[in-house]
Write a protein that binds this DNA or RNA. Structure first.
Length: 590
RNA sequence: AGCUCCGUAGUUCAAUGGAUAGAACAAAAGUUUCCUAAACUUUAGAUCCAGGUUCGAUCCCUGGCGGAGCUACCA
C-alpha cells in the first residue's frame, strides 16, 4: 500500500519533469508470474494523455525509479506494461517489519467510525438452519474486518420474539402437545418449539383443504382456516397483554433462547447487545402514529396505516394492520430509533438476505421521511440465499439443513479423517474432540465465506463439504505445519537478517504476504470476507510450494535457516490473523 | 407483468477495464530413507447469445435467453 503510494509520487514527479500534462493516479497490478518483475505499472492509460509510446514512457519512468528509489532495482518493458523489479533489501526490510507485528494487516484509520453490525436476528419459532449460518458467519466476519480497519463495532441482533409466527407455534403447542417440555421430551428447546411450528402448518393445510372441499375458494380458505384465526386472536391478545398468553409466550421463548445459546456457542459467534422485537415494536408503533399525525402516512377506511412511496417509484406499504397490530417493518422502525438512542453511531450495517432488498429500501426511506438524518448511514449488507438442489429451504415443511446437525456432521467427518491419519499422538480425547470441532467448523465456515456474498449457494447435503484443496482445513494444516517447525527450532530467530539473497519462491511468498494489509482494507470497504478467504488460500499455496522445494531447518547455511524460519513464522501469523477475521481458529497440530 | 440479483471447465469457486481467463473437487499420471502426503508436481477441460463503448470487455451499456428473489394485513 505504502509502496504503491510512494511509487505513485515518484512517477508523478517524473512525469511532471518530462511532460506537460500532470498525472497523479496510476494503475498497478501484480506482475504475472510468467514475466520477471514484482509490480507492474500499466502504461496504456497514460499514452494518449502524454502523446507518447510505451517504450519511451516506460524507459523514462523506469530510469527515474531506478535512480531515485531504493526499492526499484531494475525494470523491463513488455508491450504496454512496465514491470518493476524490487531490490532484495526491500524484501528483507519488509520481513523485519512483519515478523515483529502480531497484528500484521490490521490498521488504524484517520476516520474511525462507531458501527453497529446486525446479524442473525432469528425468529423464535424454529431452530437455526444453514441460511442462518451464512448470515451469522458473514455478520461476525464483517464485524471483525471493520474492527481490523480501525473502526469500533457493536455486534447486535434483533430477536423476532413476537408476531404471528410465534403465535402459530404457541397455538399448536397448546392444542397438541400434552404439555411437552424440553425436559420431558429431551428435545433441545428450539427444536421443540419448531416441531409445533411444523405441526401448525400441517393442521392449517388440512383445514384449508377441508374448506376448499366445502366449496370455499382457495383464497377464502387460506384466510378463514380456524387454526389461523386462533393464531391471529392470540397475537391480538398478546398485544393486549393477556396474562395467560404472555406466560405461555415467555415459557416457549425461553426454551428457544436456551437452544439458540447452545448453537451460537458451537458456531463461535457472540453479540454485544440484543434487541427484542417485543420491546421495540411499541416504539415503532408510536412513531408510525406520529408520522400519521404529521401527514407522512395515511389511514385507510378499515383503520390500517400505510405509507405511499409512489414518488420513489415504489408501492404503498402497510405499517399497521387494521386491528392495530404491528407488522415486521413497524418494529424495524422502532429498533433503528432505539439503537441510535443507545449508541452514538456513525453507521449501521444490516446483515440480511437479498430476499429483503425491497424491505430495507422501504425502511430507509420511511426513516428518512420521519426526519432522521442518520437514515443515510444505514446499509443493507445483502447476501444470496442458501438453497438445496430442489430449491428453497422451508422450515414449515421440514426441508432444512439444521445448523446443529450440520456442525455435528462436519465434526464427525473431521474425526474420521483425523483418526485415519492418526497423527495426534499424545493428545487425549478431550483435546482431540476440540481439534476435530475446530477442523470441521473451519471446513464449513470457509466453504460459506469464500463465496462472494451476493451469490446464491446451492448446498447439496449428499455431497459432503471438502477437507482437501481450497478449504479451511487445508489452510489450518499449513498453519499447523509451521507451528511444528517453530517448535523444532532451537536457535534464536530474532536475529536480524540482512544478507540473504531471496530465491524465486521466497520472493513470491513475500509478495503475497505483503498484499494482506491492502486486502483487509478492501474487504472492509466492500464488506466482503470472501476477499480474505481467497487471500489466505493464495498465500498458503505459495507457502506449501516453497516448503516442498526448500528446506527450512534442514538448510546448511545458518543465515538462510534464520531467514526461512522468520518467513514461516510470519506466514503463520498472517494466516492466523486472516482466519481470525473469518472467525476460524487455527490449531497447533493436526 | 414490473423491479432487483446472478449466468465462467462435469461440479464448487476466482479474475481493481489489461498480458496466454486462474484454482479446487471429480478424472489421468507422478513425488515420502528428508522439517506433518489434509501436502507437492504434471495432463485434459470454461467466459449463455447478439450488438455497442474502448487501444483493450468475463467485467461497462442495450437487447435477448436461462436461474433465483421481491412486488403479502408473512417475516
Amino acid at each position: 500500500m505504502r509502496i504503491k503510494q510512494s511509487l505513485s509520487d515518484q512517477i508523478s514527479k517524473c512525469i511532471a519533469e518530462n511532460y506537460d500534462v500532470p498525472v497523479q493516479e496510476f494503475e498497478f497490478q501484480a506482475t504475472r508470474k510468467e514475466f520477471r518483475g514484482d509490480l507492474t505499472v500499466v502504461l496504456f492509460p497514460l499514452l494518449k494523455k502524454l502523446r507518447t509510446n510505451p517504450k519511451d514512457l516506460g524507459l523514462i519512468i523506469g530510469d527515474h525509479l531506478k535512480k531515485n528509489t531504493d526499492l526499484v532495482e531494475d525494470f523491463a518493458i513488455i508491450q504496454g506494461f512496465l514491470n518493476l523489479i524490487f531490490s532484495n533489501d526491500h524484501f528483507l526490510d519488509h520481513l523485519n517489519e512483519i515478523r515483529k507485528d502480531e497484528k500484521y494487516g490490521f490498521s488504524k484509520t484517520k476516520h474511525p467510525k462507531e458501527v453497529i453490525v446486525e446479524f442473525s436476528s432469528p425468529n423464535t419459532n424454529k431452530p437455526l438452519h444453514l441460511g442462518h449460518i451464512r448470515n451469522n458467519l458473514l455478520g461476525f466476519s464483517v464485524s471483525r474486518i471493520l474492527e481490523a480497519n480501525g473502526h469500533s463495532v457493536v455486534k447486535t441482533q434483533i430477536i423476532n420474539d413476537r408476531g404471528i409466527h410465534i403465535c402459530k407455534s404457541m397455538v399448536a403447542w397448546q392444542k397438541y402437545s400434552d404439555g411437552e417440555t424440553p425436559e420431558s421430551s429431551g428435545l433441545k428447546g428450539d427444536n421443540l418449539v419448531g416441531k409445533y411450528y411444523v405441526k401448525f402448518d400441517e393442521m392449517y393445510r388440512a383445514e384449508v383443504q377441508n374448506l376448499k372441499e366445502k366449496g370455499h375458494s382457495e383464497k377464502e380458505a387460506a384466510r378463514e382456516a380456524p387454526i389461523l384465526k386462533e393464531a391471529q386472536e392470540m397475537l391480538k391478545k398478546w398485544e393486549d397483554g393477556d396474562e395467560a398468553v404472555m406466560s405461555l409466550w415467555n415459557k416457549m421463548n425461553n426454551w428457544v433462547y436456551a437452544g439458540f445459546r447452545a448453537t451460537y456457542q458451537d458456531l463461535g459467534v457472540h453479540f454485544d447487545k440484543n434487541y427484542f422485537e417485543s420491546e421495540t415494536y411499541l416504539v415503532g408503533r408510536s412513531f408510525v402514529k406520529k408520522g400519521l399525525k404529521e401527514g407522512y402516512f395515511f389511514e385507510k377506511e378499515d383503520g390500517s396505516v400505510w405509507v405511499d412511496l409512489s414518488d420513489e417509484g415504489l408501492d404503498e406499504k402497510l405499517l399497521l394492520r387494521a386491528d392495530g397490530t404491528a407488522v415486521y417493518i413497524t418494529q424495524d422502525i422502532g429498533t433503528a430509533i432505539e439503537r441510535v438512542k443507545d449508541y452514538n453511531i456513525d453507521k449501521m450495517v444490516y446483515t440480511v438476505g437479498n430476499e429483503q432488498d425491497y424491505h430495507f429500501k422501504v425502511l430507509f426511506i420511511i426513516l428518512k421521511k420521519l426526519g432522521f438524518d442518520w437514515a443515510d448511514q444505514l446499509y443493507h449488507l445483502s447476501y444470496g440465499m442458501v438453497n438445496l438442489p430442489e430449491g428453497k429451504m422451508k422450515s414449515r415443511e421440514g426441508k432444512v439443513v439444521d445448523a446443529d446437525d450440520l456442525m455435528k456432521e462436519m465434526t464427525n467427518t473431521a474425526q474420521e479423517i483425523g483418526e485415519e491419519l492418526g497423527k495426534l499422538e499424545g493428545y487425549d480425547e478431550v483435546q482431540k474432540l476440540k481439534l476435530f470441532r475446530e477442523i470441521g467448523l473451519a471446513a464449513l465456515k470457509y466453504f460459506i465465506l469464500k463465496v462472494e456474498p451476493t451469490k446464491n449457494i446451492i448446498f447439496n447435503p449428499k455431497e459432503s463439504v471438502d477437507f482437501q484443496g481450497n478449504t479451511g482445513p487445508f489452510i489450518q494444516y499449513t498453519y499447523a505445519r509451521i507451528q511444528s517447525i517453530l517448535r523444532k527450532t532451537t536457535f534464536n530467530i530474532d536475529e536480524k537478517v540482512s544478507d540473504h539473497q531471496l530465491n524465486t519462491k521466497e520472493r513470491e511468498l513475500m509478495k503475497s504476504m505483503m498484499e494482506f494489509p491492502e486486502t483487509v482494507q478492501q474487504a472492509g470497504e466492500q464488506q466482503n470476507p470472501a476477499l480474505i478467504a481467497n487471500f489466505s488460500y493464495e498465500l498458503v499455496k505459495k507457502f506449501n510450494s516453497f516448503y516442498q522445494e526448500h528446506p527450512i531447518l534442514g538448510d546448511n547455511d545458518h543465515t538462510t535457516k534464520v531467514f526461512r524460519v522468520q518467513l514461516a513464522k510470519s506466514v503463520g501469523q498472517t494466516i492466523e490473523n486472516a482466519f481470525y477475521l473469518l472467525g476460524i481458529n487455527v490449531p497447533e497440530r493436526m
